[in-house]
Computed example of a mutant assay.
Amino acid sequence: MLSALLPAAFVLCWSSGFIGAKLGSDTAAATTLLMWRFLPLAVALLAMLPRTAWRDLTPRTVGRQTLIGALSQTGYLLSVYYAIQLGVSSGTTALIDGVQPLVAGALAGPLLRQYVSRRQWLGLCLGLTGVATVTLADAGSADAAWWAYLVPLLGMLSLVAATFLEGRSRTPVAPRTALTIHCTASAAIFSALGLATGTATPPAAPSFWLATAWLVVLPTFGGYGLYWLILRRSGVAQVNTLMFLMAPVTAVWGALMFGEHFGATTALGLAIGLAAVVIVRRADRPPPGTRPARSPRASAPPRPTGPRAH
Rank of each mutant, 00 (worst) to 15 (best):
A185H: 06
S186K: 07
A187P: 00
A188M: 05
I189W: 06
F190M: 10
S191F: 14
A192L: 13
A192I: 09
A192T: 07
A192V: 10
A192P: 06
L193R: 06
G194V: 02
L195M: 03
L195S: 02
A196L: 14
A196G: 12
A196Q: 07
T197P: 08
G198A: 11
G198S: 11
G198K: 13
T199A: 10
T199F: 10
A200I: 07
A200S: 05
T201Q: 09
P202I: 07
P203F: 01
A204E: 14
A204F: 14
A204M: 15
A205N: 12
A205L: 14
A205Y: 08
A205P: 09
S207M: 13
S207A: 12
F208N: 03
F208L: 07
W209S: 02
W209F: 01
W209Y: 02
L210K: 04
A211D: 14
T212H: 06
T212N: 08
A213M: 06
A213R: 01
A213D: 04
A213V: 08
W214L: 04
W214I: 03
L215C: 03
L215F: 04
L215N: 07
V216F: 11
V217P: 08
V217M: 11
V217D: 08
V217W: 11
V217E: 09
P219M: 15
P219S: 13
P219F: 09
P219T: 12
P219H: 11
T220S: 13
T220I: 13
T220C: 08
F221L: 05
F221V: 02
F221N: 01
F221I: 01
G222V: 11
G222W: 07
G222E: 06
G223C: 03
Y224S: 13
Y224M: 14
Y224F: 15
G225A: 03
G225T: 03
W228P: 08
W228D: 12
I230Q: 09
I230N: 10
R233L: 14
R233I: 12
S234N: 09
S234D: 12
S234K: 08
S234P: 05
S234H: 13
V236H: 09
V236C: 09
V236T: 15
Q238N: 12
Q238R: 14
Q238H: 15
V239F: 00
N240W: 14
T241A: 03
L242E: 04
L242D: 05
M243W: 06
L245G: 07
A247V: 05
P248G: 02
P248N: 04
V249A: 04
T250R: 04
T250I: 07
T250V: 12
A251W: 05
V252A: 14
W253R: 11
W253P: 07
W253M: 14
G254T: 00
A255Q: 08
L256Q: 10
L256R: 12
M257A: 15
M257G: 10
M257R: 13
F258S: 01
F258E: 01
E260Y: 03
E260T: 05
H261Y: 11
H261P: 04
F262T: 12
F262K: 13
G263W: 01
G263I: 01
A264I: 09
A264P: 04
A264M: 06
T265D: 09
A267D: 07
L268Q: 10
L268R: 08
G269K: 02
G269F: 05
G269N: 03
L270P: 11
I272P: 00
L274P: 06
L274C: 14
L274G: 12
L274I: 15
